[in-house]
Design a protein around this nucleic acid. Structure first.
Length: 829
RNA sequence: GCCCAGGUGGCGGAACUGGUAGACGCAACGGACUUAAAAUCCGUCGAUAUUUGAUAUCGUGCCGGUUCGAUUCCGGCCCUGGGCACCA
């Protein structure tokens, strides 16, 4: 390796090669468990190996790397691993297109992207690298699945999927475009098939309750989204008897206070009660409902449609006969697949009632004393919970809570209903009818039914050398794979050909990184490292991935595999990377490939631009000119430092600062140095890397303007440079490592140097500038002694010329003083 | 449709807990250096009015409120983005 020439101009490629080799030779980022040091586990969401890195990856991994470097310089034992979320749909699509096995495509992508990450100089412990598509990884999730099965946290039930009748395959929601299959263009149908489910709902209460403990450590918005997603509600399950039948329809409501206003019931098209009816109109309606995707967003935006089933139900309290309708907005997947409808007090029920001319019965009215304007439930639903009951017979004149309780009591007494806490959260369906995923380790035996594979037979290995054609999973055609023996009775049996949802792999990889070579799912090293101290990733994962990971972590805890309750102590959700105000995506053809930029400017410039352009949580707009600016700053930084070493330092190394002898202007420069350090340190701690960089830019600008006249000036500049190099080290580690070597004239690793400390003496000031306001408007600035008492400040303020003319002949009736900052004078208008 | 964010100069953003709106950077413009250009360095840079100066008024998506003082808090809108359970 050639050592870069200090006399040349800034050559990022040369420096970055040199520094990366230096790290590698020293195994700088290889991490082992060390009980003498405080551990810090920093994790960025691992990438799907789609082909090459995109800007979102670069941003994500730079943020994680900055945090890792910063914590390392705080003296912590930092683990930062990297791996590959390697199973998934895009590999199958690429396989169809290229007629190559998904495995081949995936491994090639991993190799390319790994090289890109190395080029960007991220401080990963590559010894812990893992790929989820490798048997040594997924065998442990097969094992885990069997443990969950034995614990009763797994079950199989029928569930609805999108079915493409032409391609004869199950479609993901994203593959359904306006109700049609994306490849075939055929109208999508709904189809019911048996699927495996994990009982995440068993953990609903804990998953919800623990969110309160995470306040301040996770973004409030993510906590709120998770709360709403889990959606705990208190309500009542009510049975409506069907007229001339033994059947009952069970509904759930959080508004039993409006029960007396229920004028019809609505059932999902797939509701079992409707399966025996042969009315042709109803069949048509069911068919229409089945020709639609299953995603909630598309269903909620449908025009509300329904049909009268002809069936009738008996109101459990009033005994009234009410009609039973079927409606396209009621979903079999949610709750009981049936709802009671109260058009007077629910917006959607109201719309539907108006459309189909169903009766509207008002049973809640505003409290008389609070009534501001007339309400007319024929016109609009009155949804407030702050009214009182009317038209409700014995339940009249009650507020929400009382009405809830009295009606619940009445129903429970008659055995027609019961109080129930409900969660919106549904169990996690993990079966996928796809090839490129982890095989679900069960066997179907004619005699014994569905039997888990015995642990000594794991892993169930996915054959990698296959051709995918897009007409369903190739696994079903591979007899070598499907033909097996029942683990229980040893008779011939067939393997399950469904694979796991890829969220399965990403729900525990953070634990595997702590011991990626363990001959178990995890070993005791997991308890040294977990929980992850800082997790960094896209905000688009705010709900599903994070919730599933939290669930897995708790399930692993209950299997005594780990001893913490939550996987991620702190969470940083980064915003999107935009180009021309649009999310970058291949389909829009507006991606910026980082590779040419890395080749042209080097890793440090790209990293600096990414961190400077906006704070991590906000979306970042890509700008070629901005990259140019970042590059310019690094050149300035380089030239200034190298010129300084050449002119002032090389021949005659700088002597120490003599603090007592500094002049006014020298003290001012030193003040600026430490003010910048203090600001940058605080900003990095709160993840505002952009303003930390701005502070260093300002300091460099000031250093440029500062004239070196004597040794003490020289020492001050050196002090400032040593601070700049260390503060920028996490962001632009290569250039800083090199400048550190040059200025100190020795080869040592900058990444293990201590973070510079603020000298509070340098920040002491004898006077401060105070803003003077009159009636809230700024009218002047005055210079006063630090911590001056209010009366002195007021005296100085009123005689300041720009202030004086605004208070002439007026009496000051009030003053507000914010010490060292502001004095506000209030005069009569 | 439901849940969660965001909206500040020509542009990216700053203002941390209600206290100087526009730090830092980009672009633009002016100057220095140069035969010239690039690069580099120095300077100007929200709008309007009186007008060399300085000062005043307006200005943080829109409308209203609280306050001595609001980008920040409250109420109501508009727009954009993320998620909605089989994209990852």
């Amino acid at each position: 390796m050639q050592t870069p020439d200090p006399s040349s101009s800034y050559n990022p490629q040369q420096i970055e090669n040199y520094v990366q080799t230096l790290w590698q030779e020293n195994q700088a980022f290889k991490t082992t468990e060390d009980s003498n040091k405080e551990k810090y586990y920093c994790l960025s969401m691992f990438p799907y190996p789609s082909g090459s890195l995109h800007m979102g990856h670069v941003r994500n991994y730079t943020i994680g790397d900055v945090i890792s470097h910063f914590q390392r310089m705080q003296g912590k034992n930092v683990l930062q691993p990297m791996g590959w979320d390697a199973f998934g749909l895009p590999a199958e699509n690429a396989a169809i297109k290229n007629q190559k096995p998904p495995a081949e495509w995936t491994y090639a992508n991993i190799d390319y992207m790994r090289a890109q990450l190395k080029q960007l100089g991220f401080s990963y412990d590559w010894d812990r690298e893992l790929a989820t598509c490798k048997p040594e990884y997924y065998r442990w999730e097969q094992w885990f699945f069997i443990q969950l099965l034995e614990k009763g946290l797994v079950y199989r039930k029928n569930s609805i999927v999108n079915w493409d009748p032409v391609d004869q395959t199950v479609l993901a929601n994203e593959q359904v475009i306006e109700g049609r299959g994306w490849r075939s263009g055929a109208l999508v149908e709904r189809r019911e098939i048996p699927q495996w489910f994990l009982k995440i709902t068993d953990y609903a209460e804990e998953l919800l309750a623990e969110l309160d403990e995470m306040e301040g450590k996770w973004p409030t918005s993510v906590l709120q989204m998770q709360r709403n997603w889990i959606g705990k509600s208190q309500g009542i399950e009510i049975d409506f008897e069907v007229v001339d039948s033994n059947e009952k329809i069970r509904v759930y409501t959080t508004r039993p206070d409006t029960l007396m206003g229920a004028t019809y019931l609505a059932l999902a098209a797939e509701h079992p009660l409707l399966s025996s009816l042969s009315d042709p109109e109803l069949q048509k309606f069911k068919e229409k409902c089945s020709q639609h995707g299953v995603s909630e967003a598309s269903i909620e935006q449908l025009t509300k449609e329904g049909i009268n089933t002809g069936l009738k139900a008996i109101h459990p309290l009033s005994g009234e006969i009410i009609p039973i309708w079927s409606a396209n907005f009621v979903l079999m997947n949610y709750g009981t697949g049936a709802v009671m409808c109260v058009p007077a007090h629910d917006v959607r029920d109201h719309q539907f009632a108006v459309e189909y001319k169903l009766p509207i019965k008002q049973v809640i009215a505003p409290k008389p004393q609070e009534q501001q304007e007339e309400i007319n439930t024929d016109q609009e639903a009155y949804t407030s919970k702050h009214g009182i009951t009317v038209n409700s017979g014995e339940f009249n004149n009650l507020g929400f809570t009382n009405a809830f309780d009295r009606i619940a009591d009445a129903l429970e007494k008659q055995g027609k209903g019961e109080r129930k806490i409900n969660y919106r959260l549904r169990d996690w369906g993990v079966s996928r009818q796809r090839y490129w995923g982890c095989p679900i380790p069960v066997v179907h035996c004619e005699k014994c039914g569905t039997v888990p594979v015995s642990e000594d037979q794991l892993p169930v290995t996915l054959p990698e050398d296959v051709v995918v054609q897009g007409d369903g999973s190739p696994l079903t055609r591979l007899e070598n794979f499907t033909q097996t023996h029942c683990p229980k009775c040893q008779q011939p049996a067939t393997r399950e050909t469904d694979t796991f949802d890829t969220f399965f792999e990403s729900s525990w990889y953070f634990a595997r990184f702590t011991c990626s070579d363990a001959n178990a799912m995890v070993d005791k090293r997991a308890n040294y490292w977990l929980p992850v101290d800082q997790y960094v990733g896209g905000v688009e994962h705010a709900i599903l991935h994070l919730l599933y990971s939290r669930f897995f972590h708790k399930a692993m805890r209950d299997l005594k595999l780990i001893n913490s309750n939550e996987p991620f102590e702190r969470l940083l959700t980064q915003g999107m990377v935009l180009k021309n105000n649009e999310k970058m995506s291949k389909s829009k053809g507006n991606t910026v490939d980082p590779q040419p930029l890395i080749d042209r400017y080097g890793a440090d410039t790209i990293r600096l631009f990414m961190m400077f352009a906006s704070p991590p949580e906000q979306s970042l707009e890509w700008s070629d000119a901005g990259v140019e600016g970042a590059s310019r700053f690094l050149k300035r930084f380089w030239h200034f430092t190298m010129a300084y070493i050449e002119e002032h330092h090389k021949e005659a190394p700088i002597t120490d600062l003599k603090l007592a002898k500094l002049s006014e202007s020298q003290l001012n420069f030193r003040f600026s140095t430490y003010q910048a350090l203090e600001k940058a340190t605080q900003d990095i701690q709160r993840n505002h890397f952009n303003t930390a960089i701005a502070a260093m830019m300002s300091l460099l600008n000031e250093a440029y303007r500062y004239l070196i006249k004597e040794q003490q000036d020289s020492a001050l500049i050196k002090e400032a440079l040593l601070i700049m190099i260390r503060v920028l080290a996490p962001i632009t580690p290569h250039i800083c490592q090199y400048l550190w070597e040059q200025i100190n004239q020795k080869n040592e690793l900058l990444c293990f140097q201590a973070w510079p400390e603020v000298d509070n003496n340098a920040l002491k000031r004898t006077t401060v500038t105070i803003v003077v306001q009159v009636n809230g408007k700024i009218r002047g600035k005055i210079e006063v002694a630090t911590n001056a008492p209010e009366e002195n400040v007021v005296k100085a303020a009123v005689i300041a010329p720009t202030v004086k003319k605004h208070i002439e002949n007026q009496k000051i009736i009030k003053t507000i003083y914010v010490p060292n900052k502001l004095i506000s004078l209030v005069i009569k208008p």
